[in-house]
Design a protein around this nucleic acid. Structure first.
Lengths: 188, 188
DNA sequence: CGACATATTGAGATCCATCAACCAATGTGG
DNA sequence: CCACATTGGTTGATGGATCTCAATATGTCG
């Protein structure tokens, strides 16, 4: 599945000059401070955020508790998928966990560009497919693994997460309490 | 999100004659008997199956146990998403739970048709987006709800599942044991 | 230093899995 | 058509995993 990212990056490199220019013309860079919200609940996610540097997360509130659904690092694309796709109010927040730099692309402009440049349509499909596989894999983990197994999976496959993100957030990302995560770590 | 299915169906109806003919020319109907496997583990998912009638499921084996990941009814599109997308061996099986009739479209032929007819590319994107939102929603349920809440959710939003699918399969679809599901049902 | 966020540890409660016994419906071979 | 196996579901007892509440560190930053 990692190889699919390579495929997407390779594909982007093979884009013709016009397509690439069109894409760049609708993107712009922006900086956020640690703690800033890139997207707030109830807003429509009208932009996609490509992380150039820093760390961010996506989360929502249930019963006043924050549940982290995704962590973003360099080169990750941050959006609230359903809000972006349906252009409906978001259930989720996107928050900068450190100072971040992002490349922003507007939804509407991208839609128009896709109509003009079919290669961007194909790119969008690849991105959606990648996200689908990523979520499917995460669901698989929740469906079949214990908390300890899920933690070990992160520890081995994404050690940068454990090294840079507070345990409180990792615990909610794993769907367990902070205390349980602390005990799991003490055992391992 | 249900409205997105409507959007997709509406989109299909607006396809021009050539595009529609191209799509139909690479699709064919087939019948399977109850218990037949449409896709076996380790095979590459080279076809998509649109259910015309009957019920099917997708599942995989972990430690000799069957874990049901998706249930299919009329008008649902059955594929092993990552196997289909990456054209890699499938971790999952697709099995007919009743006699079924499906409309089969070959992966390779569809790829070629997408290159010729950009409207099919746009259709594929919508389908991938829909699946992404569906999985995201299911992950959300595993992330935040108890077994009882997940069962009640199915009971209210998809009563046809509870009415037609054996409890053993529903339990594994919910990620709980048959016994626990039985007790939940006794309480409700 | 003080204050607030972050993490650890303990004790008790709750949810759920597992193992095992049992029951009901269905189907099959003789 | 009966005897028996098979499938699907229920119920009870027990143990393990995880949550919650609470107390106590350990930072970290103004």
């Amino acid at each position: 599945m990692t190889s699919y990212i390579d495929k997407i990056n390779t594909y982007i490199k093979t884009l013709d000059h016009d397509t690439l220019t069109a894409l760049q013309s609708i993107s712009s860079d922006k900086k956020y401070k640690k703690g800033d919200l890139l997207l707030k609940q109830h807003e429509i996610c009208g932009k996609s955020y490509l992380l150039m540097s820093g760390i961010a997360r996506k989360y929502y509130l249930t019963d006043g508790k924050e549940i982290t659904t995704e962590l973003y690092f360099e080169n990750d694309l941050a959006v609230s998928f359903d809000s972006y796709t349906l252009q409906q109010p978001s259930r989720e927040f996107i928050e900068a966990l450190t100072d971040v730099t992002v490349s922003i692309t507007h939804y509407q402009a991208f839609q128009e560009a896709k109509a003009k440049y079919p290669k961007l349509l194909a790119l969008d499909l690849m991105l959606a497919e990648y996200y689908g596989m990523w979520v499917e894999n995460r669901l698989f983990q929740f469906h079949t693994m214990t908390a300890t197994e899920r933690y070990l999976e992160i520890l081995h496959k994404s050690p940068h997460i454990v090294q840079t993100v507070p345990l409180t957030i990792i615990a909610s990302y794993l769907g367990i309490s902070l205390e349980t995560l602390s005990r799991i770590r003490a055992k391992v």
